[in-house]
Amino acid sequence: MIELVSVNKIYSKGPHQIAASNNISCTIQEGEFVAIVGKSGSGKSTLLNLLAGLDTATSGKILFEGTDISSFNANQYAQHRLNNIGIIFQSFNLIFSKTALENVMLPLIFAGYSTAARKQKAQQALEMVGLGDRMQHKANELSGGEAQRVAIARALVNDPKVLLADEPTGNLDSATTQEILDILLSLKTRGKTIIMITHDQEIAAQVADRILTIKDGLLSE
């Protein structure tokens, strides 16, 4: 489903060049739950940004269902994210002034759904993550676990093929971590392709079909 061919991402800082992604090649199959494990600064978030189209590779190809997305422009990437990718962030990235429901409805605005359809789909997504009773609460009134579940609902609401999770349990206690991992596992059983980035080998081993390790921008199985 996703294929990376010799992908490099090099950041220039004055005379120095830092390779955040170093000649990365790998393939991720449809329905697979892949964990990318690495320490802080290893290049795992850069890799996730490249997969999400939030950043562009310096060289190499990223193929999504056979299409090379590495040459997309900003609007094509946005469309790609809207149709195919759901992203879950460590810091939730919710709009705190809006309710849980409004946050989940956000991608559907860009997808062109009517207000009624947006509301219905967002309610369904929130009920799926167990937040049917917290829809009208502002994001800043939610606990960390609830906020992350809202973020998962937002990532799922437009029915993407791939979920990219960047340290989804990084800010959560152990009980809440388990709740989030359970939700991710249930999504895998529904056929979603999940790529999770984590620094925690144990969590990766608990949920992933396959673990890839990244160190100094180099990816290894």
Partner: peptide
């Protein structure tokens, strides 16, 4: 600014 980033991350185009 962060809100704009979120909107772009969930599929908002420059035009949006």
């Amino acid at each position: 600014k962060r809100e704009i980033g979120i909107m772009k991350a969930v599929g908002g185009k420059n035009r949006d």
